[in-house]
């Protein structure tokens, strides 16, 4: 049975706006469809990336999945229950990490926060110690346990938050922008940890992100939401194919040259000895690189991945 089952899920907000043109104090009621008729289901053990541009409805969906927000339409069950009706009961079975804010107690050392969570979630003491030891080792939190949360760096705090969300062995972990603001090393470590978590404990992961590399490193499946509606649900490779997204090969030639001509790629821009070549994201870079290197004197090469905004923009301009 699916762990998350959303059918025609909708959430409409009523906002009041001042009438722009008229000189009146009356405010117009306006309906905003933050999430509109979204249908998807997630099986236990899946790692799903839930992506979309700002304001697409990602956070609204997460809020409905956790029971914080009541849907205005459709049907939603998580772990067999309706989240908004059984919020407190469901809380024991899910973990939530918000990248932009901490769920820990700001003035208290990590250890105190964790111990309180043990009581609140009624985690069996032996299991608690086992989990705490495991996460402290995996996330290298050992030296930080007695530091108040407010003194932690963003990356350290995020590791603390993730531990806090996992101590009670949740079946599903929601991560809202978990890597936002982290440096490259921290991002890499975090992804590694999440992969291990999913592989060893079978925890289902649903994460929203702006970083396509999070998805590439973690998710076999991507759900794209835009303007509140489901735009795509499938593999990442399929998304690139569908969106016709392009990767970019940046070539630094030894000397200035006219536009490079190789099969499978086209020059988009030339600036002195540097040239930008586009090729389809689902094609291998190797033949393009080989062709360039065979015909030109190359000083340096680099490949830029398409970012998520571009992929979605492409997806929409085509449909």
């Amino acid at each position: 049975m699916a762990l998350i089952d959303a059918t025609d899920l909708s959430r409409t907000f009523v906002v009041r706006r001042k009438d722009a043109g008229r000189r009146s104090l009356r405010r117009r009621r306006e309906e905003v469809h933050a999430v509109h008729g979204v249908t998807f289901s997630v099986e236990p053990g899946e790692m799903v990336g839930y992506i979309g541009p700002n304001g697409a409805g990602k956070s609204t969906t997460i809020k409905m999945l956790t029971g914080i927000l009541v849907p205005t339409g459709g049907r939603l069950t998580v772990a067999g229950v309706e989240p908004s009706r059984h919020r407190t009961e469901l809380a024991r079975r899910i973990g939530v990490v918000f990248g932009q804010r901490t769920t820990l107690w700001w003035d208290l050392p990590l250890r105190d926060s964790f111990e309180l969570l043990q009581k609140i979630y009624a985690i069996e003491p032996a299991r608690y110690r086992e989990n705490l030891d495991a996460f402290v080792t995996l996330l290298e939190l050992g030296d930080l346990l007695d530091t108040p949360v407010r003194q932690l760096s963003l990356g350290q705090r995020m590791r603390g938050d993730i531990t806090a969300a996992l101590l009670h062995d949740p079946e599903v972990l929601y991560l809202d922008e978990p890597t936002i603001g982290l440096d490259v090393v921290s991002k890499g470590r975090l992804r590694e940890f999440l992969r291990t978590l999913n592989a060893e404990r079978g925890t289902t992961l649903l994460l929203t992100t702006h970083d396509l590399q999070d998805i590439e490193a973690l998710c076999d499946r991507v759900i794209v939401i835009d303007h509140g509606t489901l735009a795509y649900d499938g593999t990442l490779a399929g998304l690139h194919g569908r969106g016709g997204s392009m990767r970019t090969l940046v070539v630094d030639l030894v000397d200035e040259a006219p536009a490079i001509s190789v099969p499978g790629a086209s020059v988009r821009r030339v600036e002195g000895p540097r040239q930008w070549l586009s090729f389809p994201a689902d094609a291998s870079a190797a033949p393009v690189v080989a062709a360039v290197a065979a015909s030109y004197a190359v000083a340096d090469l680099s490949i830029q991945e398409p970012d998520i905004e571009d992929v979605i923009r492409e997806l929409y301009s085509r449909s």
Binding site: T66, G67, I68, F98, T103
Partner: peptide
């Protein structure tokens, strides 16, 4: 929101 996701 955080408090709403806790079983208390």
């Amino acid at each position: 929101d955080t408090m709403l996701t806790r079983p208390v």
